[in-house]
């Protein structure tokens, strides 16, 4: 599997890849690209579709509300494309909308904890420069599950739930790796909008 280019060299922007669309990097550079409402909306729609797909997949480890975290794919892409702050907004918007559509208040709580914690950890991991997309995504998968289990422990007021931690750690690293592979493949094919 090829190494994924994850630094985003500024000059590459100028080459334009013959895509026609002019691309301005956010003034001040650094943290991510410009905010395009349409682009953001498309990502949000994708994330919601994946949230729906997730409700169809039976993944039950014994803790009510704990999810697989497929939507992390969209969040990872957003993180790499637009930076941490837009990915954070996307993640929160996704959690709220998906919660109202497919879930309830407690599922919002679980997803919010998992989503926000994993995003912060992924952004941090990415910033260190020591991880590729695969690693960043695995960090996300694992911390996503840790966030959820922490909420579950608080909600059920039982530490016994930590019993599931090993399973959740492994499943987090596996889904994270799969999502990392998917994200790397998508990024190879996706022209930077």
């Amino acid at each position: 599997m090829g190494e994924v280019q994850e630094r985003r060299p500024e000059p590459e922007e100028g080459q334009g890849q013959g895509r026609g669309r002019g691309q301005e990097e956010a003034p001040g550079g650094g943290n991510g690209g410009r905010f395009h409402p349409a682009y953001f909306g498309m990502y949000l729609a994708l994330a919601l579709i994946l949230s729906y797909v997730e409700t169809l997949i039976p993944f039950y480890v014994g803790i009510p509300g704990v999810k697989l975290g497929l939507t992390n794919l969209v969040i990872v892409l957003m993180l790499y494309d637009r930076g941490a702050s837009q990915a954070l907004v996307l993640s929160c918007a996704r959690v709220l909308l998906a919660g109202f559509l497919f879930g309830n208040l407690s599922s919002i709580l679980y997803s919010m904890a998992g989503g926000v914690l994993s995003l912060l950890c992924m952004a941090g991991a990415r910033r260190t420069g020591k991880f590729s997309v695969y690693g960043v995504s695995m960090v996300g998968g694992v911390t996503h599950n840790i966030g959820q289990i922490l909420v579950a422990m608080a909600v059920v007021e039982s530490v016994g739930i930590a019993f599931y931690l090993p399973v959740l750690l492994v499943s987090g690293v596996v889904t994270g790796a799969l999502i990392g592979v998917a994200a790397a493949e998508v990024r190879k094919r996706l022209p930077r909008a």
Binding site: M1, E3, A125, T128, K130, F131, S132, Y134, G135, M138, V139, V142, F163, L165, P166, V167, L169, V170, G172, V173, A177
Partner: peptide
């Protein structure tokens, strides 16, 4: 995969194994 990826992977799997052993 970068070195950090492997370290993370090993650390998580190791932690899971240790926890599992403790529970057992």
């Amino acid at each position: 995969m970068k070195k950090g990826d492997w370290i993370w992977l090993a650390a998580v799997l190791g932690a899971a194994a240790v926890l599992f052993a403790i529970y057992m």
